[in-house]
């Protein structure tokens, strides 16, 4: 990776009261890569994501995005940068008082200055792109299943055709077929739009099929960040259990079968 990183996290500290979540954490995100972020529950993956997108002011350290330290910008400048982010929150975080179409049309109307009709037409396309049926467009978040909420949230994250996509456990709660389609969609979008993807996941299949690099969060920092093969060989208890436990072995086997079937 000769490219300059789009996101550079340096010596990041995060603590809540006396509870230290991150300590001297370093991480780079390179253009057009899909970086998988894994780690046990409660190791601070969501907190790291929130710190990068600016929702959680870090207790210490620096985060530069597109070469700028977001904490030092004025509100309007920040907003310009934030439009280049798309975020899918762990719980979906759809606006419960708007239907799906309106949820996705909202940023299009506010930022891309489209008319409501144009925005809603585009919104329906994005919903279809994430695999939702047409009749879902008029539904409210409370009427949807968990998997549909995830898809709609992805559609909203993609609304402004962002440059960096942050996904917090996007395939958790999806059925395996839906999860596989989701993985494929992310790769397609990355290839077509030149997206950079920060992907928090527990899903080993997602790691194997989509990620270019994997960062492991453990012991308050990024233990290693490298290609999957190298990370899987790292000598660490948690990493070994994760990649070479029963589920890890199954995912490797599935991945090997797949790559044998389609040579090249």
């Amino acid at each position: 990776m000769a490219d300059h990183p789009v996101i550079q996290v340096r010596a990041l500290d995060n603590r809540f009261g006396s509870h230290i979540v991150h300590e001297k954490l370093d991480l780079d995100l390179y253009p057009r890569e899909i970086l998988g972020v894994v780690g046990g529950s409660g190791t601070g993956k969501s907190v790291l994501l929130r710190s990068i997108v600016g929702l959680n002011p870090p207790s210490g350290g620096h985060i530069t995005v597109f070469g700028e330290d977001l904490t030092e910008l004025s509100a309007t400048e920040r907003s310009r940068y934030e439009q280049r982010f798309g975020v899918l929150f762990q719980g979906g975080a759809l606006f419960t008082s708007l239907n799906l179409e309106q949820n996705i049309a909202l940023p299009l109307i506010e930022h891309a200055r489209l008319s409501r009709a144009e925005a809603e037409e585009l919104a329906r396309m994005k919903l279809a792109l994430t695999g939702l049926p047409p009749e879902a467009a008029k539904k409210y978040p409370a009427e949807l299943s968990g998997g549909m909420v995830k898809r709609a949230a992805l559609a909203r994250a993609l609304a402004l055709d962002p440059e960096i996509l942050f996904l917090d456990e996007p395939t958790a709660g999806l059925d395996p077929i839906g999860a596989a389609a989701f993985d494929e969609l992310i790769v397609t979008l990355r290839n077509a739009l030149g997206l950079t993807v920060f992907l928090v996941t527990h899903d080993l299949d997602t790691l194997y099929t989509t990620c270019d690099r994997v960062a492991v969060l453990s012991q308050r920092k990024v233990l290693v960040a490298d290609t999957l093969e190298k990370v899987a060989q790292t000598d660490d208890r948690w990493i070994q259990d994760y990649f070479h436990g029963p589920r890890g072995r199954a995912a490797i086997a599935a991945h090997n079968r797949l790559t044998e079937q389609e040579p090249g």
Binding site: P134, T188, L189, N191, A192
Partner: peptide, 22 residues
């Protein structure tokens, strides 16, 4: 380019569904 072909393909397939009657 392959990337753009994939994108157009994905969008076309997504829009190939009958739209909901209002």
């Amino acid at each position: 380019p392959n990337e753009q072909r994939a994108l157009i393909q994905a969008v076309s397939e997504a829009m190939n569904q009958p739209s909901a009657e209002v």
